[in-house]
């Protein structure tokens, strides 16, 4: 499953590179191009499942210096799991 997000950094977050280095340690996260001094950083999350995307998004939110994580794109097909329509979790009982 693939999603992309914009991570907004806090006003006084400290050196941007330190934050980016921490983010780059998260599995499946690819940081895009951004201008020097930018506080909104584009990223792609490529994960094997919807669960993993959620977990990565939560971890991004918890990173030092991160104010917000806004999702801007999501590819709904999850090729590692049954489709949503057939998932046992597709509806609550």
């Amino acid at each position: 499953m693939i999603a992309s997000v914009v991570v907004t950094l806090e006003e006084r977050a400290g050196p941007v590179q330190d934050i980016i280095d921490e983010i780059c340690n998260l599995a499946g996260v690819e940081v895009g191009d951004f201008a020097p001094g930018a506080h909104r950083i584009p990223m792609v999350i490529d994960s094997p499942s919807a669960n993993a995307i959620e977990e990565t998004t939560r971890r991004l939110q918890d990173c030092h210096g991160v104010a917000f994580v806004d999702v801007v794109f999501v590819h709904l097909e999850d090729e590692s799991e049954p489709s949503i329509a057939n998932s046992p979790e597709g509806a609550h009982e």
Binding site: I2, S4, V6, E30, F34, I41, D70, F73
Partner: peptide, 22 residues
């Protein structure tokens, strides 16, 4: 094909985020 397709989707996803961020 699947790998190529995944790369295309990722490229689209990154382009969307880059445009919003910028």
């Amino acid at each position: 094909d699947a790998i190529q397709r995944r790369q295309f989707i990722k490229a689209t996803a990154m382009a969307a985020a880059t445009a919003v961020a910028g």
